[in-house]
């Protein structure tokens, strides 16, 4: 957050540069008061809807709660996380399946978010250019995002059916493959299939946010660049990309958050298969299918911590890497 703090400090001094010290501090104080006033409704609402469920989940993660009788939950400390008993390790952290799920999720998130960012940028740049029929293209691009996930996942699983799916039919038609592939069944392909559908589904999210950023850029830099005769590719990397970076970063964070919590797509497409099981699928299996609310809550809390860690890493890493503003 360092850059933003500096910016705003900059702004505040700028705004008050013509005023006296006394007026400045008064102004700042009234602005801060207004800020809290504006924040209050949002915060109250968030605490209301998120506070209780989050607190409850974290509390349950330290108990032996079971879905069939939640009121009898007993505090058991960290046993759901890790416990040593009769020469064997128990708990989420000692479960190979959990680590398999963590690894699957990370792999999925990195690959799909990277692909979505690149494709989203390309689509946004195309939509940013003006050409006839642009409005229709814009609507068309949003369609994948507009179809409910449970439906699009089923739709793709039908299209990827090894025997009568249209995907194999097309690929065989143009000669890319000679025998039908078992997209969602083969252990090697299942993850690819999930990523493929996810990229298809969420690229519009990225491109729309990037497009908004592109649309809000000041035009004078471009004019200057055009006058100087700089190659468009260089303009993109040296002017556009740094300028849209803050918006891009936020778009990527939210995609990353969603990707790390991916659930319904994998659940519908490949069910509980180990090859694609994500952290959320694991947590849900424990919470709902196995009714172990305590253990599942521990998995959820760990998922929360993992996601948090990824975001913190991403933000530190991201700032160090491209802070060229």
């Amino acid at each position: 957050m360092a850059t933003t703090e500096a910016e705003v400090a900059d702004l505040a001094t700028g705004a008050a540069s013509t005023a006296t010290q006394v007026e400045k501090s008064q102004l700042t104080r009234s602005r801060v008061r207004a800020a809290w006033l504006f924040l209050a409704p949002m915060l109250i609402l968030l605490v209301m809807v998120a506070g209780w469920p989050l607190f409850r989940t974290i509390w349950f993660s330290f108990t032996d709660a079971n879905l069939s009788d939640l009121s009898n939950a007993k505090y058991i400390g960290f046993e759901n996380y890790l416990a040593y008993n009769d020469g064997e390790w128990y708990g989420v952290l000692a479960d190979g399946e959990w680590w398999n799920a963590v690894w699957n999720t990370l792999k999925f998130s990195v690959i799909s978010v990277t692909l979505e960012t690149i494709l989203g940028l390309v689509v946004a740049l195309v939509l940013n250019a003006s050409f006839p029929g642009r409005s229709l293209v814009r609507a068309a691009v949003l369609i994948p995002w507009a179809i409910p996930t449970i439906v699009s996942a089923k739709m793709w699983s039908w299209m990827m059916h090894d025997q009568f799916g249209i995907l194999n039919h097309m690929l065989m038609g143009i000669g890319l493959i000679s025998t039908p592939l078992a997209w969602t069944a083969s252990p090697d392909l299942a993850m690819t299939a999930v990523i493929m559908v996810d990229v298809w589904k969420t690229t519009p999210f990225m491109s729309l946010l990037i497009l908004a950023a592109l649309q809000m850029l000041p035009t004078d830099c471009y004019e200057a660049a055009r006058v100087d005769g700089i190659h468009p590719v260089r303009v993109f990397f040296q002017v556009t990309l740094p300028l849209i970076k803050p918006a891009l970063m936020v778009a990527v964070i939210f995609r990353l958050l969603d990707a790390l919590r991916i659930f319904d797509l994998i659940y519908v497409l490949t069910s509980n298969s180990k090859d694609t099981m994500s952290m959320s699928v694991y947590a849900r299996q424990q919470l709902v299918d196995f009714q172990s609310v305590g253990y599942g809550s521990a998995a959820s809390t760990l998922l929360f911590l993992t996601v948090g860690l990824c975001v913190v890493l991403y933000m530190t890493f991201g700032r160090v890497r491209f802070d060229g503003r």
Binding site: A50, P53, F254, L260, R261, S280, S297, S300, L303, V311
Partner: peptide, 14 residues
Amino acid sequence: LGVSMFPQVAVLSG
């Protein structure tokens, strides 16, 4: 941001 780090299934019963 932290609010959107929790899996939906975990928030569901609360």
